[in-house]
Computed example of a mutant assay.
Amino acid sequence: MTAKPHFLPSAGRFLVYAVLVLASVFFLLPLYAMLVTSFKDAQEIRSSALLALPHALNTAAWSTAWSSACTGVDCQGLRPFFWNSVWMVLPAVAISTVWGALNGYVLSLWKFRGSDALFGLLLFGVFMPYQVVLLPMSQVLGWLGLSSSIAGLVLVHCLAGLAGTTLFFRNYYAAIPNELVNAARMDGAGFWQIFWRIVLPLSTPIIMVALIWQFTNIWNDFLFGVVFSGTESKPITVGLNNLANTSSSVKAYNVDMAAAIIAGLPTMVIYVLAGQFFVRGLTAGAVKG
């Protein structure tokens, strides 16, 4: 006799779903509180509960946070800091990803004497505290004439992310069969031909991992931004800190919340749109080898 399918979830599955839903609510609760507060005016914030919905969608705090909030003595909002971060993140992410891909390609498929030792030395960069390199990095930027500039921040983030991207690509490329590369060599393909025509087309999952990883780390960085930036090159994390710490007669919590969401919005959008590719890339071999 054929058993009837069970349409209702089992008690164990129901418990797992319940725990996941509760964890999601707990995780998203601060974001919800920030979002509803950003749409309230000062009077409504004082008179209503923290989690209460606003009576109307008041976008004045968002406009203030973007274009007119004071960050110290400057009252231009987060707009200049946002664009500083954009001009910093785009080249830094692209350069560090390409650089890591080339390093991983060489260290996995074009091994030479001492390549494993070199890879081991590169791994120190993954675990080294960034505070250790602040002084020597500032000296290097001074020698290159890149102090307090967006170009200097791009260089710093490329160097800081190089160890991580190299690790990702090296472990991913280690899973590519050597026979594939050897066959291409026998057919006369050189270093760059193999990379562009064979290895790179197979690298989409790990490229997505590196891009998302680097974008998140660089956009959210505060330490390098506050240490190496100048008046005209501060990233959005520094601008958000200055905005939140600027004293006034009445604390504008709605403006602070709107500013925090503006600062975190690009990374949230990246993970919503490309988060599945990040997981697929990791499971495809980014942490193997």
Rank of each mutant, 00 (worst) to 15 (best):
M1N: 09
A11N: 08
G12H: 03
L15K: 01
L15W: 11
V19G: 00
L20V: 12
S24Q: 07
P30D: 10
L31I: 12
L35H: 00
V36K: 03
S38M: 06
D41R: 11
I45W: 09
R46Q: 14
A49P: 01
T59C: 10
W62C: 03
Q76N: 15
L78W: 05
P80L: 04
N84P: 04
V86N: 07
V86I: 13
W87I: 13
W87N: 13
V93I: 07
V93F: 08
V93E: 06
V106C: 07
S108Q: 02
L109M: 12
K111S: 12
K111M: 14
K111Y: 10
K111P: 07
F112T: 09
F112I: 07
F112S: 12
D116N: 12
F124L: 15
F124S: 10
G125I: 05
G125S: 08
V126Y: 03
M128F: 14
P136N: 05
Q139K: 14
V140L: 15
G142A: 14
L146W: 12
S148C: 00
V154L: 07
V156C: 08
L159P: 03
A160Y: 11
G164I: 11
T165A: 07
R170M: 07
R170P: 01
R170S: 12
R170I: 00
N171Q: 12
N171I: 00
Y173P: 02
P177Y: 11
N178H: 13
D187P: 00
D187H: 09
G188I: 05
A189D: 11
A189T: 00
W196N: 06
W196Q: 10
I198N: 02
I198W: 06
S203M: 04
P205D: 05
I207R: 02
I207Q: 00
V209E: 00
T216K: 01
I218V: 13
D221S: 01
L223Y: 02
G225W: 02
V227R: 01
S233P: 07
K234V: 03
S247N: 14
S248V: 10
S249G: 08
Y253D: 02
N254G: 14
I261F: 12
I261A: 03
I270Q: 06
I270H: 03
A274E: 06
G275R: 06
V279M: 11
V279Y: 08
V287G: 15
V287D: 13
